[in-house]
Computed example of a mutant assay.
Amino acid sequence: MPHFRLHHGVMACALAGVMLATAGCGGTTRGSAEDSGSSSGPTTEADPNATIPEGLAISFLPKQLNNPYFTYANSGGEEAVAELGGEYKEVGPSDANASSQVSYINTLSQQGSDVIVTAANDPSAVCGALQQAREAGSAIVTYDSDTDPECRDAFVNQASAEGLALVQVEMIAEQIGGEGEIAFLSATPNATNQNTWLELMEEELATPEYEGIEVVDTVYGNDDDQKSFQEMQGLMQTHPDLAGVVSPTTVGLAAAARYLSTSEYKGDVKLTGLGTPNQMREYVKDGTVEEFALWDPKNLGYLAAYTGAALAAGQITGEEGQTFEAGRLGEYEIGAEGEIVLGPPTVFNADNIDDYDF
């Protein structure tokens, strides 16, 4: 069974971002609307009883392709699109630079995508392209990493930012005994979710409860395995008295664990953050890492796809308080600024890590 942990009364929830994209050919919702001279994008008034049409073109645009986290997350999106009788597509850049997603958004819009689901590499860089896609009739859903709220219709959040910050602070504090120097190994400097978590973690660590802990550095591995490995190595050279590292990115956490596992710091320097069981299993079993946390990425992608479909069908418009059904995950309610929360995070350790395969 999943081991769920609630922190300070905050349940971390996951939100997945979905963008609806439909090819401009016969049989798609958006194509039919264009034939009749009307738009099939999200309507101004929601009809909870509206039927989701078959043939919706739902496209996923992750931060980058060939990232194991997004490969697994998007498999949930593909599952949902199949259930909905839609057309699934995945496109994206090979790097996670701020503006690398713009050309893909433009192409999906030109192709007549009903729904575009994207994890933004930068909160503002993709906004112009997303707005143009919305004007052309695409429903825009962000997942994992949000844009500015006015640039999309809904945001599927993997977890509440406060909940994820708290779980990571509590894990590292417990592992280092409540005192010592720590550092952060993040993804890209402009990643919306990463920066939000870092800010909230620093705020929490500034409270009297954690007065014995000092944050001495924040470095960025750009969600690249080798660069993250090198940044972890650099942290230990710069801060030889480091007690622990928090890496709120799956790529960074695995790379940092790989460095520590063969270094003199193994077992002494504590490492935690957000990771996947398959990436971290060997490091938990060999004693490099005690525990880490994450939501189920597959469910994140799955929820994002259903969110996009509900938007395209007019069941929801992204307004706070609206509800919709998300297949096997059940009913969800939209929160403030169009945010939808997936559910509580899971904490993985030696006791339960073999119960998961992703």
Rank of each mutant, 00 (worst) to 15 (best):
Y220P: 01
T196L: 10
N157P: 00
A125M: 01
E170R: 05
A129V: 06
V126I: 13
E204Q: 15
Q226N: 14
S145M: 09
Q110R: 09
T196F: 02
I172M: 12
S145L: 01
Q233I: 12
A125F: 01
T196A: 11
V156I: 15
E199P: 05
R134K: 12
M171C: 07
V167D: 13
A243R: 10
V126F: 02
A120Q: 03
N222I: 08
A125S: 10
E162S: 08
V126N: 10
P123H: 02
M232W: 02
I172K: 06
E202D: 03
L185W: 03
D241K: 07
E179Q: 13
T207P: 08
G221W: 02
Q226A: 14
E162W: 08
Q110Y: 12
E162K: 08
P149A: 10
Y220T: 10
P149I: 12
R134C: 14
A161Y: 09
M171K: 04
G221N: 02
E174D: 14
G180I: 14
M201A: 09
F229E: 10
F155W: 02
T188C: 06
E181H: 09
N193R: 07
N157S: 15
D144R: 03
E214D: 13
S124T: 12
N195V: 04
L198H: 00
D122V: 05
G163S: 09
S160P: 07
L166Q: 15
V156W: 09
G128Y: 01
E174V: 06
V115P: 00
T238C: 01
F184W: 03
A161F: 08
I140F: 07
L200K: 11
R152Q: 02
N222D: 15
G177L: 12
T207S: 13
T188Y: 00
V251E: 06
L130I: 11
T188W: 00
A125C: 02
D217S: 11
A173H: 13
T238I: 10
L130Y: 09
T188Q: 03
G112I: 12
D144P: 05
S186F: 02
Q237R: 10
L108C: 05
E203Q: 15
T118Y: 07
N195C: 10
C151V: 01
S247R: 05
T192Q: 04
Q194M: 11
G244P: 00
L166K: 09
D241L: 05
F229L: 15
W197L: 14
I105T: 13
V126M: 04
Q237T: 08
E179M: 10
K227C: 04
T218R: 11
Q131H: 01
